[in-house]
């Protein structure tokens, strides 16, 4: 498949010369100018700051006078890689956000397909509006709701259960538990609860893009399939899913690039009893950043994150090329 693509490129290159093609597309270059300006000024210009990753750049009188000191070379990186909490945070970041990403994809696509099956226009409207609502709550609010619902109460001996949250109260009532469980301080339970909170807040919102893609599928395709005698399941499998596959992959890969950025949802929800499973790179950076205004070190962490993202995205791009014949770039 990859070969096909190359051949195709090859043939086109042979026809008109580069100059001719540039002339043909002259209006497109014009159209790209606004994009290019914003891109260069607000994204590429600040990138010069990446050089601070190789420097000692702190709020120091000496730094203010003479600028960052580049003599440490890779010092920030050796410091980073020798830190135990950083290793744990790196592992947690990958595990938490990757599983969350896969869950997000599966849940949003499934629910988008089901919403698409609702025939009643009003019903559809109400369902969508309600499912989007949690997206508008901030993470702090979402986390405090979950903490309240999941609370194990305020008595460590478990004898007095008057302050337990909704979930524990139900589980105690029907006899599944004989003592309240604090889901938020149990390392085994915390990731699951975090995934559920993320899905609660973002699944509905995540369906928007798939619903838009679904609405772009030509009705002709279904009519044709119906004539061929394909049932509902078959239509979904052979028409709907392939039609939105491109969107699914693009969303997946784009989100893969953001995988290292998970922060606020963890920050408002974690605690010291579950650091082993919950501390992620950004929360770690936050704590380090609070103590010292060490721009060099924090830029180094940023650069490290970027390199990992780059590897992930390139890998998925290559996989996408293998499977579909073309990548996303």
């Amino acid at each position: 498949m990859a070969n096909n693509n190359d051949n195709f490129d090859h043939v086109i290159v042979k026809k008109p010369s580069v100059g001719q093609r540039m002339f043909k597309y002259r209006y497109f270059y014009l159209m790209f100018i606004p994009v290019a300006i914003v891109l260069l000024v607000f994204y590429y210009w600040p990138m010069l700051g990446i050089r601070y990753a190789f420097s000692t750049f702190k709020l120091k009188q000496i730094t203010l006078r003479t600028g960052p000191d580049y003599s440490i070379g890779l010092g920030n990186f050796t410091r980073l890689l020798s830190s135990d909490p950083f290793h744990a945070a790196f592992k947690n970041t990958i595990v938490l956000s990757f599983i969350n990403l896969v869950l997000a994809m599966v849940c949003s696509v499934a629910i988008a397909l089901l919403i698409n099956e609702i025939q009643n226009a009003w019903g559809k409207k109400i369902v969508q509006t309600v499912l989007y609502l949690p997206h508008f709550l901030s993470w702090v609010v979402a986390a405090s709701i979950f903490m309240l619902i999941l609370s194990a109460g305020t008595d460590a001996t478990g004898a007095d259960t008057s302050n337990t949250g909704f979930i524990n109260a139900i589980l105690l009532q029907i006899g599944i538990l004989d003592k309240p469980v604090d889901f938020l301080t149990e390392s085994k339970a915390w990731p699951t609860v975090w995934y559920i909170m993320n899905r609660w807040k973002e699944t509905g919102w995540g369906t928007i893009i798939y619903l838009a893609a679904l609405s772009s599928i030509s009705p002709d395709l279904y009519e044709a399939a119906e004539i061929d005698g394909a049932g509902r399941m078959k239509q979904t499998w052979y028409i709907t899913i392939p039609s939105i596959m491109n969107t699914i992959l693009v969303v997946f890969i784009l989100n893969l690039a953001k995988i290292m950025n998970v922060f606020e949802s963890v920050f408002v929800f974690y605690n010291s009893l579950v650091y082993d499973v919950s501390d992620v790179i950004q929360t770690y950076t936050y704590r380090v950043g609070i103590v010292g205004n060490d721009y060099g070190y924090s830029t180094a962490i940023g650069l490290f994150k970027s390199v990992v993202s780059l590897i992930l995205v390139s890998a998925s791009d290559i996989i996408s090329k293998k499977i579909r014949g073309y990548g996303i770039v």
């Binding site: 891109l39 994204y43 010069l48 830029t299 940023g302 970027s306």
Partner: peptide
Amino acid sequence: SYMLLFTMIFNGGLIPTFLV
């Protein structure tokens, strides 16, 4: 398109952007 995607992954960080 590479230049665009590149910015999703690499960025200058808070301080350099602020200085720009």
